[in-house]
C-alpha cells in the first residue's frame, strides 16, 4: 500500500495503534474474576494463617505466629520430609525412565517424532483419578501384578505393595512421566549430534559422553523436566490419599486433614502457605534455568 495515500490529517500513531487504547479495558473482567476468586482467597488464607482456631472450628482473629511455629513440630516436619523424599524419588525415577525415550524421540525424523510424542501424551489425557485407579487395580493383593508374579514363580505369597510409599511413588511416576519426557526431548533435539559423535571419535567412554557432553548440554531441559515433576508431586493429594496408607501421609493429605477433619483452618492455611512458598522457590529455579536455556540456544 502506498503510504502517501494516507490522508495527512490521520494521527501519527495510526499504524502503530490500529485499535483504540481502551482495548486494554478488555482485561478488566478477567482480572476482576481472578482477583475475587483467586487472589482474594489466597490473601484471606494468608490472613487466616496468623489467626487461631475457635473452640468449634472457625477462626478467631488474632495475630500470632503460633501456626507457623506449630509447623516445626517433629510430627509435621516428618510429613514434610516424607513429601520431599517421595517427590525426589519420583523425580529421579521419571528422569531415569524418561531420558532414554526422550533421547530416542529427539533423534527421530520429524514425522515419526510427532507420532511418538502423541503416543506419550495420550495416556496423560485420561483422567488422573482413572489412571490412579488403574494402578490400584493392578497392585492390590489379589490384583494382576501378584498373579503374574506368582504365575512366574517369582513370589510364593502375594506382596502387599498397595497402601505403601512404593505405591505412591509408582502412582506419581505414572502420573507425571510425560512432564519429564516433553522438555527433555526438546532439549536433546537442540543438542547437535555431531558433538556426541565427536566425543565418541575421541574415544570418550560411555559415561564420559553422558556426563561430560550430553548432561551439561541438555541441562535446561533436565531442570525443566525435574521441576515440572517435582512440583505437582510435592503437593500431591489424590495419589497418596488413594494409594497410600495411614502411615504415608504427604503434605497434601495433611492440609486436607486440617481443613476437613481437624477443622483447624488457621493451621491448615499455614501449612498450605509453606507448601506454596516451597513451590514458588522451585519455580524460580525453573524460570532461571529456562532463561539460561534461551541464552544458550541464542548463542548457538
Amino acid at each position: 500500500m502506498n503510504p502517501d495515500a494516507v490522508p495527512p490529517d490521520r494521527p501519527e500513531s495510526f499504524r502503530a495503534a490500529p485499535v483504540p487504547r481502551r482495548s486494554s479495558l478488555l482485561l478488566l473482567p478477567a482480572l476482576a474474576w481472578l482477583g475475587l476468586f483467586f487472589f482474594v482467597p489466597l490473601a484471606l488464607m494468608l490472613a487466616i494463617s496468623f489467626a487461631s482456631r475457635g473452640t468449634y472450628g472457625g477462626v478467631v482473629w488474632t495475630l500470632s505466629l503460633a501456626n507457623y511455629a506449630n509447623v516445626l513440630d517433629p510430627l509435621y516436619v516428618k510429613v514434610f520430609l516424607r513429601s520431599v523424599l517421595l517427590a525426589s524419588v519420583t523425580t529421579v525415577l521419571c528422569l531415569a525412565l524418561g531420558f532414554p525415550i526422550a533421547y530416542y524421540i529427539a533423534r527421530l525424523p520429524a514425522r515419526r517424532q510427532g507420532i511418538w510424542l502423541l503416543l506419550v501424551m495420550i495416556p496423560f489425557w485420561t483422567n488422573f483419578l482413572i489412571r490412579t485407579y488403574a494402578w490400584i487395580f493392578m497392585l492390590r493383593t489379589e490384583g494382576l501384578m501378584n498373579q503374574v508374579l506368582a504365575g512366574l514363580g517369582l513370589i510364593g505369597s502375594p506382596v502387599d505393595v498397595l497402601y505403601t510409599e512404593m505405591a505412591i511413588v509408582i502412582g506419581l511416576v505414572y502420573g507425571y512421566l510425560p512432564f519429564m519426557i516433553l522438555p527433555l526431548s526438546a532439549a536433546v533435539e537442540r543438542l547437535p549430534p555431531s558433538l556426541v559423535e565427536a566425543a565418541w571419535d575421541l574415544y570418550a567412554s560411555r559415561w564420559a559422553v553422558l556426563w561430560r557432553v550430553i548432561v551439561p548440554l541438555t541441562k535446561p531441559g533436565l531442570v525443566a523436566g525435574c521441576t515440572l515433576v517435582f512440583i505437582p508431586s510435592l503437593g500431591a493429594f489424590m495419589t497418596p490419599d488413594l494409594m497410600g496408607g495411614a502411615r504415608t501421609m504427604m503434605i497434601g493429605n495433611l492440609i486436607q486433614h486440617e481443613f476437613l477433619v481437624a477443622r483447624d483452618w488457621p493451621f491448615g492455611s499455614a501449612i498450605a502457605l509453606v507448601l506454596m512458598v516451597s513451590v514458588l522457590l522451585g519455580l524460580a529455579i525453573y524460570l532461571r534455568a529456562e532463561r539460561a536455556g534461551t541464552r544458550l540456544a541464542a548463542g548457538g
Binding site: F37, L44, G235, F237, I255, M276, V279
Partner: peptide, 17 residues
C-alpha cells in the same frame, strides 16, 4: 499463576473464601 500453584491451594483457599 493458577496454572502453577498446587491445585490443593486453590481448592482450600476457595473453600475458605
Amino acid at each position: 499463576l493458577p496454572l502453577v500453584i498446587p491445585e490443593i491451594m486453590m481448592g482450600v483457599s476457595l473453600m475458605l473464601f
